[in-house]
């Protein structure tokens, strides 16, 4: 039964441009185009969420590292104290500590200037006991134990109070972690929403292509073959949508990076940069967006295949 019904040698090659292996599930349909749009939007939002989470995680890491590399000694003098000598003594003690890279005292004028945002400019603060600040830069990444320095300051300059910013850094860290967890949850919700949309689209495509499925069965196609065709169809749609959404997200972050570079040189730019980082995704961030797009494509194909296989198994 394997003998060909006609002699293949007699056959002549068809003319060029001859269509020979078109997808068995029609590529262009209203439902297919709508799914591409949905996937593109979802991918864009998922990439934005993932990118934002990465930016916040990076910025949080930078904040913590900066904050923990600095410590502050606050000298609160009594009316009878010689402030300058107390400050000089505290600076000397701090500078001698092995974990300290440098210690620098703010002048009286600099300390008073720090109060301007609250008290206004042009006030005579000479009668007020304005505390004096000593900025201490630590060696390493701020993991040092400052107990020895604290003890030395307490015994030599009891008016001095060392703040290593750990409480503040911990709060910042908690806040940033909460934002990253929220972003991850949003990302997961978007993936679930996208999966649901793909599920509906697959069921719709199966209903719309029932005739094709029936013909395929009648000509001897297995369920696996049919599911593979649907998988390829939806993987194509998924890839199409993911590429559009992913490219839009990459363009968004590239533009944001350019704008933040421009803002950094404008008034207030430093504050924005300090709060949100530079808005610039690292190359690993862009790679992560690529991974999101690839995952969306794979998810679309696999999910539709699973749904199709389940549906076909119920058919008689």
């Amino acid at each position: 039964m394997n003998e060909p019904i006609v002699d293949p040698i007699l056959a002549v090659q068809p003319e060029p441009g001859f269509q020979t292996n078109a997808p068995l599930i029609p590529r262009d349909s209203v439902a297919g185009r709508a799914l591409v749009v949905v996937i593109a939007i979802m991918t864009f939002l998922a990439c934005l969420t993932a990118g934002a989470a990465l930016l916040i995680a990076d910025a949080s890491q930078a904040w913590r590292s900066d904050v923990l590399r600095d410590a502050t000694i606050q000298v609160k003098p009594q009316p009878s104290d010689d402030v300058e000598s107390l400050v000089a003594k505290a600076v000397a003690i701090a500078a001698q500590a092995p974990e300290v890279e440098s210690a620098h005292a703010l002048s009286k004028a600099e300390s008073e200037k720090l109060l301007e945002p609250w008290l206004g400019a042009g006030l005579d603060l000479s009668q007020l006991p304005v505390p004096r600040l000593i900025l201490v830069r630590l060696r390493g990444q701020g993991a040092e134990d400052l107990a020895t320095l604290r003890k030395a300051l307490a015994s030599a300059v009891p008016q001095a109070d060392l703040d290593d910013h750990r409480v503040w850094a911990a709060r910042l860290g908690t806040m940033a972690d909460a934002v990253v967890i929220l972003a991850a949850a949003l990302f997961a919700l978007m993936i679930v929403a996208m999966g649901t949309a793909i599920g509906f689209a697959t069921r719709g495509a199966m209903a719309g292509n029932r005739e094709i499925i029936e013909v395929l069965h009648l000509v001897g196609a297995s369920d696996t073959f049919i599911a593979r065709e649907f998988q390829a169809h939806f993987r194509r749609l998924g890839l199409h949508g993911a590429v559009i959404g992913g490219l839009a997200a990459i363009a968004f972050f590239a533009l944001a990076s350019l704008l933040s570079f421009w803002w950094a040189h404008s008034p207030g730019g430093e504050e924005i940069a300090a709060m949100f980082g530079s808005f610039a995704l690292r190359s690993s961030g862009y790679l992560a967006l690529g991974v999101v797009c690839a995952a969306v494509t794979l998810l679309t194909g696999l999910l539709s295949r699973t749904i199709v296989m389940r549906h076909l198994q119920t058919l008689q």
Binding site: I5, V6, D7, I9, P14, T20
Partner: peptide
């Protein structure tokens, strides 16, 4: 391909 083309002819 050859088989299908010939049958179609």
């Amino acid at each position: 391909r050859a088989e299908v083309v010939e049958l179609l002819r």
